[in-house]
Design a protein around this nucleic acid. Sequence first.
RNA 1: CGGAGUGUAGCGCAGUCUGGUAGCGCACCUGGUUUGGGACCAGGGGGUCGAAGGUUCGAGUCCUUUCACUCCGACCA
Length: 575
Amino acid sequence: MRFSKAFIYTKKEAPSEATLPSHKYLIRGCYIQSVGAGLYNFLPLGKRVLDKIRNVAKEELDKAGCLEVDLAFVTPLELWEQSGRVQKYGKELLKFRDRKDNSFVLGPTHEEMMVNLVKSYVNSYKQLPINLYQIKTKFRDEIRPRFGLLRGREFLMKDGYSFHSSTEDMKREFDLMEKTYSNIFRRLGLDFRIVEADSGAIGGSGSKEFMVLANSGEDTLVICTNCDYGANIEAAKRAKRKAPLVANEEEAVSMTFGKFHTPEVKTIEQLSEFFHINPFYTLKIVAKKAIFEDGSSKVVLFGVRGSDDLQEVKALNAIDGAIDLEEVSEEELKEAGFEPGFIGPKDLPKDAILIVDKELENERLIIAGANEKDYHYVGLNLNDLDLEYKDLVEVKEGDICPKCGGVLKFSKGIEVGHIFQLGTRYSEPLDAKFLDENGKLKPFIMGTYGIGISRLVAAIVEQHHDSKGIIWTKESAPFEVEIIISNIKKEEENKAGFEIYEELIKEGIEVLIDDRKERFGFKMSDFELIGIPYGIIVGKKIKDGIVEIVDRKTLNKEEVKLQDVVEKIKGYLDR
RNA sequence: CGGAGUGUAGCGCAGUCUGGUAGCGCACCUGGUUUGGGACCAGGGGGUCGAAGGUUCGAGUCCUUUCACUCCGACCA
């Protein structure tokens, strides 16, 4: 491809709203154009990168036996009502009506459609397992799109769905997909980590996320410094925290049950000061308003150690049927019959919902609110109360790994893939069943697997760039080599440049030749911005039969004889 | 949805306080010089100043309404 005909118009300045390197460089390098909140046009360069990534994904998936399909983008709202996800997705679903007044949604994901498709063709266990996928534009009306391609409203996603006759077989496929996804991200040259994740709006159990490690990532990952344990903070676990070995420990342990007058002592901080005790021994109650699928709401309570914080996603999952948790005001708390600042597990109103973190199970010596203004209980034995325990705590840096006992640390990541063990979450409500070996009707056991293809474009840049621009990895680069003719008016340079160009094309190498009437420096800085892995500079030294190969990553230049340059490049490209 | 801010040429911005011929840089077009690190000279094209209404002899500028976008937060496979 000739640069002069390639629709590449680089910019010196990025739009002021672009804050991340990927956003800035992709716009400056003429890969994408912004058209509105979370909407982008892919320009010829960007489209090439997108196709590269897409092809890597397709090759690996096909190798693993997956079948590509392409489902309708516009899907009947009815399907979403059947699966019960209209409420759960809420306003992120873009709904609209056609001229006949039928309701549709723009697909944000395609579980419903896919289940519907499969159930109309597959009736027998003999047809299983199958794994269907598509690489298709999705639309989610995000509340706040940002960070360029990392969080757009319209984006390209690979979504795959597998159908099985047994849970064991589904798990086998899940493991296969984990391997396949790893191959895809490895081929793309990414430094990534597989972590345990929350299943979110998709539902189901057992899910893993593929995280590209980058400082600009929106997700916080908890990673063990000793073993391979990793989890999204929303799902991270830790070894149970031990009591701190402090001077007043004995005092804490020796406390006997009683009610204490604690005027105006409302926060954990005040409480631990008042009793001169580590917050570890106190019970913190966090109140939230749970929103349910039918639109109703209720104030719910969560109990964690005073020294811990509540993990909101875990909290949400702990409440059956809740789709959201909101903040509660003091007034709402009082209306619901609670005493703000003095809420505790004992003597709660009868219909109150309280979930307590499971690390507190069997704890005997705790200070907690008495549900009465200006009073707390001390020496409370939680075993005396009939409480419900679930995992609620947010893991902190320095906590202990649940797997190996090593120390946990935080890292930032960009989610580029997510695989789920779905079970019958969709097949059951959508009545998708098959006949098993015994002639019994059973719902499909499913898995679902996603890769953010357009997000990967940005994720690669986030991980592979420098102060001058993008540094594409070999399998993601829009071209493999760029030939830079220093001065196109010099017949010798021009001729040699195009000779190399033709030879590389003959070798099946994707090459861009900068044949523009521009100065050397201008072309070099475009080369650095655009980020093609290797450059071949044809300039002054051509009269001695010498050209240079530039490595975009290191910016080192190497002098090479004209007749050797093609072989040399082939070597660098592993051809 | 809460807080903050911005809409002026394709992009980045000034001009708005204090109303009086719509500007600068980049990019673009023409000619010339230059040619290994974002050149220079000369000439040129391009704007319903986000939209609607109002005040005024006169509005990019003042008033009202409205739309869009961005940032922080809440939110979010």
